[in-house]
């Protein structure tokens, strides 16, 4: 089974890109799709209705969605494999941009919109710098010069990233992406690990806690002035 993990901010065009990938491969592969979101998501229902592929979704609720993704990904790989899938597409929630959900196998794709702001690639850190491929969407909305300025910014964050620009609604210029998916090796589901360190430390133990201020929290905490996570705080 091949694996593609798609990440990126809300409204960047992750689902539209997914739809193009599904459209391209649905006749030659069994495709499974996992959507991770926080409160509400319709992508799984839409894709199932449109293409009849295997879909699942998980709501992370109070949990950090990328952490929820990490928790459930093992099960998702098993589910997809049990159902004979040839390609598993995982779409992240696209909320907090602190983590990178990419794995040591398969392809990691960051989806960025041309209008998402020129500093977005720098601010997003690992979500860009650990991706294999960057897909720039909505290129019909900006000038060629601005697209090239955006590309330059991304290249300055991640020199080796494979960049492609598209109007994902029409699926322009995605042949290279399809080729990369076709050529990507089968994954070994038993040996999947995250590419980057997730800053999950605070999430699990903060669930349900509405109090603000580090004194109300446990584990690795951070003060306004002072170093991050230098010590473990276990409460009074």
């Amino acid at each position: 089974m091949k694996l593609v993990v798609i990440a990126g901010p809300p409204s960047a065009g992750k689902t539209t890109l997914t739809r193009q990938i599904v459209k391209r491969f649905k006749d030659e592969m069994i495709i499974a799709f996992l959507k991770i979101d926080v409160v509400k998501a319709y992508e799984d229902i839409e894709l199932k209705k449109e293409f009849g592929i295997l879909t699942k979704k998980i709501y992370s609720g109070d949990l950090c969605p990328d952490h929820a993704g990490v928790m459930v990904l093992g099960d998702a790989v098993e589910w997809a494999e049990e159902n004979g899938a040839d390609l598993l597409i995982v779409e992240s929630a696209g909320l907090c941009l602190r983590c990178s959900p990419y794995l040591n196998q398969g392809l990691g794709v960051i989806v960025l919109s041309s209008i998402s702001g020129i500093h977005a690639p720098e601010k997003m850190g690992a979500m860009v710098s650990l991706a294999d491929i960057a897909v720039i969407t909505k290129i019909d909305l900006v000038s060629q010069a601005e697209r090239e300025v955006m590309i330059q910014k991304i290249k300055e964050v991640h020199t080796k990233i494979i960049l492609m620009e598209t109007n994902a609604l029409q699926g322009n210029s995605l042949h290279r992406l399809y080729k990369l998916i076709q050529d990507s090796p089968e994954i070994d589901g038993k040996n999947l690990i995250l590419k980057g360190n997730p800053p999950l430390g605070t999430c699990t133990i903060c669930i349900g806690r509405k109090e603000i201020g580090w004194r109300h929290h446990f584990g690795v905490v951070q003060k306004l002035d002072g170093p991050v996570a230098e010590y473990l705080y276990r409460g009074e």
């Binding site: 500093h119 090239e148 330059q152």
Partner: peptide, 18 residues
Amino acid sequence: CFADLTTEEFLRIHARAR
């Protein structure tokens, strides 16, 4: 243009890209 840059910065980055 959506890029939050001055005209000079915008052109400078584009010149770098080209």
